[in-house]
């Protein structure tokens, strides 16, 4: 299990998963379409992963494939991985996929995610170095969280290298204080 305090992991677990209730549940307001606090067996609800995961293990619900891993996405990623907008589908595409693959019994998920990541990885690194220090390109709006981190790591390593070569002031204003204020006069 990931670190308890891992912010990314927590947000990833908020991803909604479509589930079908196998058993009736009493005393909870889960189903937005139901008027009472009773959920009947067979009702279809979208639950966040943190809830669906445990309930699935206890066989209270059965998970279905989430929309971001549908057939169409797979086809698009297979055609030209680097041009697909994964951010709008799921910000934590890879982590979510890894977590959910054993639950929905999808054996091809692993190799599918790997090949998608591989084709996109190449593009990200190339662009991070070439487009360095210009305005954030359109590319950034397509990237998942993981890929954005990669992109930023590549850029900051370039910046650090340049600083090392050219040199600069050793002391700087602490970054915690935020951006520089405007001069008072």
């Amino acid at each position: 299990m990931a670190n308890y305090y891992d912010i990314d992991d927590i947000i990833m677990e908020q991803q909604l998963v479509p589930v079908v209730f196998q058993k009736a549940v009493n005393g909870v307001e889960i189903d937005p379409s139901a008027e009472t606090d009773y959920v009947e067996a067979g009702s279809k609800v979208e639950l966040p992963l943190w809830l669906a995961y445990e309930l699935h293990l206890k066989q209270v619900v059965k998970m279905k494939v989430p929309a971001c891993f549908n057939h169409r996405t797979k086809l698009e990623l297979g055609a030209d991985g680097a041009a697909v907008d994964l951010r709008s589908r799921c910000l934590y595409f890879y982590e979510f996929g890894c977590k959910i693959a054993p639950l929905i019994g999808d054996r091809d998920m692993g190799s599918f995610l790997l090949s998608a990541f591989r084709t996109r990885y190449q593009q990200i690194l190339a662009k991070a170095h070439n487009a360095a220090f210009t305005a954030p390109s359109k590319l950034l709006s397509f990237l998942t969280k993981e890929e954005t981190n990669l992109y930023e790591a590549a850029q900051s390593s370039m910046a650090a290298f340049k600083k090392w070569r050219i040199g600069g002031p050793r002391f700087e204003r602490a970054s915690v204080l935020g951006r520089k204020r405007k001069s008072t006069d």
Binding site: Y4, I10, K23, A24, V25, N26, G27, V28, I30, Y38, W50, L51, E54, L55, K58, V60
Partner: peptide
Amino acid sequence: NEDHYGFLIHHLSLLRNKRC
């Protein structure tokens, strides 16, 4: 029974809130 699963959901939500 159905109440038992209701417990479970409340319990999980508590843990989740605590984690956040």
